[in-house]
Design a protein around this nucleic acid. Sequence first.
DNA 1: CGGGCGATGTCAGCGTTTTGTCATGTTCCG
DNA 2: CGGAACATGACAAAACGCTGACATCGCCCG
Lengths: 223, 223
Amino acid sequence: MRLLLVEDDDRIARDLAEALTAAGYLVDRESDGEEAWFRGDTEDYAAVVLDLGLPTMDGLTILKRWRANGRTFPVLVLTARGAWTERVEGIDAGADDYLAKPFEMEELLAWLRAIVRRSAGQAAPAISIGSVTLDPRQMRISVNGVPKNFSPQEYRLLSYLMLHADRVVSQMELTEHLYAQDFERDSNAVEVLVGRVRRKLGVDLIETRRGFGYIVDKPEDSG
Amino acid sequence: MRLLLVEDDDRIARDLAEALTAAGYLVDRESDGEEAWFRGDTEDYAAVVLDLGLPTMDGLTILKRWRANGRTFPVLVLTARGAWTERVEGIDAGADDYLAKPFEMEELLAWLRAIVRRSAGQAAPAISIGSVTLDPRQMRISVNGVPKNFSPQEYRLLSYLMLHADRVVSQMELTEHLYAQDFERDSNAVEVLVGRVRRKLGVDLIETRRGFGYIVDKPEDSG
DNA sequence: CGGGCGATGTCAGCGTTTTGTCATGTTCCG
DNA sequence: CGGAACATGACAAAACGCTGACATCGCCCG
């Protein structure tokens, strides 16, 4: 489970990152506004923890831009105690929840669990690439309209590749996304997984880029 | 848009009522617990703002009774700051959201907007999926027109699944919805419950998505 | 008060599916 | 050729979900 943590206060950020990592999340940390925006706009996170007071780009602006660009990951906003205007604006900007600082770590973890769970199969529209359709609400993948049975891990893999269609995804990246951080590095689990997914698909969707990773080719014109 | 405001502190209630009225809502105000319950049980509101500390009948009890009677309006609960347990109980009782006192009026209005918006497409009086019909007002479930006897817990489970038909609902989500926060995580209560519901239904309505959760398949056209 | 009954969570056992590992092929490229 | 990167089939452990039996609790009714 990969999170984006956007917080400029170094002490808080470090504490948070540590706790979240300990809780089993994979944490990307960002302190600068613009860079945070870019990451959120280009990567796919399970959730974002967003502090509103940031250099170079305000947290609210970031959030609005993400939403405007169709980024749907759940966002947990951190506000200063009593800064209720921020909260209100946050809601309207598309925040899923907020937490007032200072807060208890347990509380944040609880919110995160709830948030991630709630949005687990949410309104994200189905993705179609070629003859393959992925419906995140039903967690179902169909080929030419025929639903196929994928295991959780297979589903995650294919979903990740399809979400990042048109760019090469390295085995490392897949490993990070699919497994806990202490996973054996010299395992060929990803290769095996890709194989299984390919067989179940019955269609050439996942292409191997030897030495780089895998890619799902999105036909240029489709839309 | 008609609201029920349940608050015994006269000053707060007056302020709230005024602000809500100014915001264009039609406000019914109630300070006594039992009377509030009666109103909510007999009138149809777009939403309810509910303080938990009340004379003659506790706010939580009111909420539970409403839900038990199939009242589905969204409820915004007001809790004392930091009253974490109240929140948790609120979830179990069927609250849609909470706000910690003291809060700013703008904040409450934002919540209300969000809440009403969210429940906009969800006020259906009865749900029919396949041969199964759920009537929330009577808390009754029929299969092919034949009413079946479900226990409260069974009813809640099936009702939740049917309300969220067409998307996968994880065991975690069900657990959170059906049980208190401190519920044992490695319990198989949900599985047992699903089994019982299935047997009583006698129809294949609840599908298992191994590793993901359960889903009730909604036929294409129904709306 | 007390017995009976329904509701509900726990538990252990079972069969199935999932999934990482390993060994062995296969392909690609210099 | 040779080696590295990738594919694949077989296998076994673990995870997962289903079920029947049982314990517990609250409630109703005599």
